[in-house]
């Protein structure tokens, strides 16, 4: 951006024109969200009213969500699963990345190439055998069935390896001379240095698993184990006519993401521009 800044960008009126254009596009981007907020405060009698602004503000839609479906339970499930997956994926990926970037062992590069080669395999190919595996292991309809298969990621390993390659080795060399074990170097030297990479991967892993739909849809049969996306699907199916309550629920689903996004913006943008993050 700095280099582009050196270009002269024409006269003042041109800038104003660009601002007007950008504001117009921002409006198109934001209007659906605004409509959602307004609709979530409408009383039942005004759902069919074309005026998006409720004549009487009706916050009762929010508690209604928790009364009609086990929304609190879905919330807890989503967070529980997404947090566990994020933690496990960060650990397994960081350890593997350390092995790929910091330790020399025979066959390392061949294994890494194998990891790279699998990154283009579509999810639907592995989904079917994995489902059968979960059935065999008796993990169908359980938290473990949601968490364990997602705890390993070739992509995450790749991203963290790239990141760790950029960390200077001088510190590990010093630690090695002091007699530090690999685990100590990994935990005390490499992990703190890799923090920005870990945060980036962590944010996207959390996001991806919080929003995950296909896998929980086929894995979970019991109502009390449903995550938010699956819960929302059935809520919409059963109560699709109550737009107001539905919008309150949708808004509550994405609220944590908006907070996460604002908090971690810097890492998100960098992460995408660094490695073309999926999703």
């Amino acid at each position: 951006m700095k280099t582009a800044g050196k270009r002269s960008d024409g006269k003042g009126w041109k800038k104003v024109l660009i601002h007007i254009g950008l504001s117009g596009i921002v409006l198109t981007t934001v209007l659906p969200f605004i409509w959602m907020v307004l609709a979530s405060f409408k009383p039942m009698s005004e759902i069919e009213n074309l005026n998006p602004v409720p004549s009487r503000w009706h916050p009762e839609n929010y508690p209604a969500v928790f009364e009609q479906i086990r929304f609190a339970r879905y919330y807890v499930n989503s967070f529980f699963v997404a947090c566990w997956v994020t933690f496990l994926q960060l650990m397994t990926s960081a350890m593997a990345a350390y092995s790929f970037s910091r330790i020399e062992w025979r066959g390392r590069d061949a294994v890494f190439k194998l990891y790279l080669a699998t990154m283009m395999i579509p999810g639907v190919v592995t989904m079917i055998p994995n489902y059968a595996l979960m059935v065999k292991m008796g993990l169908l309809d359980s938290y473990a069935g949601l968490i364990i298969p997602a705890a390993f990621s070739a992509f995450g390993t790749f991203l963290l390896r790239q990141f760790m390659l950029g960390i200077p080795t001088a510190l590990d060399e010093a630690a090695k001379i002091d007699g530090a074990s690999h685990w100590q170097i990994f935990w005390n030297v490499c992990m703190p240095m890799a923090r920005p990479g870990l945060i980036t991967l962590g944010v996207f892993t959390f996001l991806y698993n919080y929003q995950s739909f296909f896998w929980p849809l086929i894995m979970i049969k019991s109502d009390h184990l449903r995550t938010l996306p699956v819960g929302m699907l059935y809520f919409d199916g059963a109560y699709g006519k109550q737009t107001n309550v539905l919008m309150a629920a949708s808004l509550m689903c994405i609220a944590p993401l908006i907070i996460l996004f604002v908090a971690a913006q810097k890492f998100i943008v960098k992460g995408i521009q660094m490695g073309g993050v999926k999703g």
């Binding site: 929003q211 929302m232 949708s250 908006i258």
Partner: peptide, 8 residues
């Protein structure tokens, strides 16, 4: 993009 999913 960041919030895309079933809720949206």
């Amino acid at each position: 993009t960041f919030t895309a999913g079933v809720a949206l």
